[in-house]
């Protein structure tokens, strides 16, 4: 197809409900570089299962990433993808979605990519509320560079040669940050519960606006103790996920392992103001006339 800029009329359907789709329809034949037992396999599986359940046509989905183990994900899909530079997945996704609102856009990446080098973009994606989904695969460590502390690493984790005494800095709370920055959809899934994670991703994609899924995804190589996460996860405890004041308190009371929908608030997704010109040539001529004497 040949899109016109920002065309909102979708000439081709985004999904085809007449066809049965399987997760493998969305997977490429490229073998992941991930270690055996890496949580990211499960996130990839949940993502492809979500796309299959939504019956989205692969060519209408774009997966955007930065740098890191999890950011390798687009190559393992049979979708359009952009594997960019470290920390910048969210602006690439934002630009693509604004220019091509007909597409389903999903940004993926790790905790270092999203909350450290790309932290500013995370804040502004939350407040800008462009309609795309961000799945942050959080394993509390930089895996690709061989095991350094990330913003979500506990302050006393002293297994990195770079911070031999631990970071001494409290771990960042992505959900709290997202809420403060104005995100309308905040959820947390766990690689060990792929069914719930799939459902959270489906909800996120269907949400009209910026949707944030923090996917706890273990690093077997550098933080093997994360295998005990399965004993720590629990449903996120809240009796009102639509009230930001409530949610702020709920997030603070939570230990970071509460799973499920954390916050949901419907507000219009941001779309730029523009007009579909009847005639580009005459619109340009009008502009040119402003220079004429």
């Amino acid at each position: 197809m040949s899109p016109t800029a920002n065309s909102t009329d979708t000439k081709i359907p985004l999904s085809d409900t007449t066809v049965t789709r399987k997760p493998k329809d969305y997977k490429s034949s490229v073998s992941p570089i991930w270690c055996a037992g890496c949580g990211h396999y499960s996130v990839l599986a949940a993502l492809t299962r979500a796309l299959a359940e939504l019956k989205l046509m692969p060519e209408n989905v774009a997966v955007i990433s930065g740098i890191g183990c999890s950011s390798r994900l687009p190559a393992y899909t049979r979708l359009f993808g952009f594997h960019g530079v470290h920390g910048r997945a969210l602006p690439v996704a934002a630009g693509l979605k604004v220019a091509r609102p007909d597409l389903t856009v999903i940004a993926v990446g790790g905790d270092g990519d999203g909350f450290s080098i790309g932290g500013n973009h995370f804040l502004h994606a939350c407040r800008r509320n462009i309609n795309f989904t961000y799945i942050a695969m959080d394993n509390e460590v930089y895996g690709m560079t061989k095991g350094q502390a990330s913003p979500t690493t506990p302050s006393d984790w002293d297994h990195s040669k770079l911070t031999p005494h631990g970071t001494g800095i409290p771990a960042l709370q992505p959900a709290s940050l997202a809420l403060g920055a104005g995100a309308g959809f905040i959820s947390r899934g766990y690689f060990g519960d792929p069914k719930q994670l799939t459902n959270l991703i489906i909800d996120a994609i269907q949400y009209e606006g910026f949707s944030f899924v923090q996917a706890l995804s273990q690093c077997v190589t550098f933080v093997p103790e994360q295998k005990h996460w399965k004993e720590r996860v629990h449903p996120f405890n809240s009796n009102d996920i639509s009230d930001p004041a409530h949610t702020a308190a709920d997030i603070q009371r939570d230990d970071g392992f509460g799973l499920g929908q954390i916050y949901r608030h419907e507000r219009p997704a941001w779309v730029p103001t523009h007009h579909d010109p009847d005639n580009t040539k005459s619109t340009l001529e009008v502009m040119e006339k402003t220079f004429c004497i």
Binding site: F80, R88, P91, G95, H124
Partner: peptide
């Protein structure tokens, strides 16, 4: 955009989209 890092990457995304 929020900064120039974002602006250059936003136009990369849009151009990837064919615009």
């Amino acid at each position: 955009a929020e900064d120039e890092l974002a602006s250059i990457n936003m136009i990369i995304g849009a151009s990837f989209g064919g615009i």
